[in-house]
C-alpha cells in the first residue's frame, strides 16, 4: 500500500499535465479552426518561396 503514496500523485500529475496542455492549447486558439487545421497539413510551405509563386 505504500506505493499508493507515490503512484496516486504521479497519476494525478500526469493527468494534470494533459489537462494543462489542453487548456493551454484551447486558450492559444488552437481549437478555433478545426477544419482549417485538417487542411493545412496538405499545404507545403516549409521552403522560403520566391517572389512569384502563384501556381499550385
Amino acid at each position: 500500500m505504500d506505493m499508493l503514496i507515490i503512484l496516486i500523485p504521479v497519476a494525478l500529475l500526469l493527468g494534470g499535465l494533459g489537462l494543462a496542455a489542453f487548456l493551454w492549447a484551447l486558450r492559444s486558439g488552437q481549437f478555433d479552426d478545426l477544419d482549417g487545421a485538417a487542411m493545412r497539413i496538405l499545404v507545403d510551405d516549409d521552403t522560403p518561396k520566391k517572389a512569384d509563386d502563384s501556381d499550385s
Binding site: M39, R40, S56
Partner: peptide
C-alpha cells in the same frame, strides 16, 4: 473549399 484555397488566399 480546400487546402490550396487557404494557400492561395493567404499567399495572395
Amino acid at each position: 473549399q480546400c487546402a490550396s484555397c487557404i494557400r492561395t488566399v493567404e499567399h495572395g
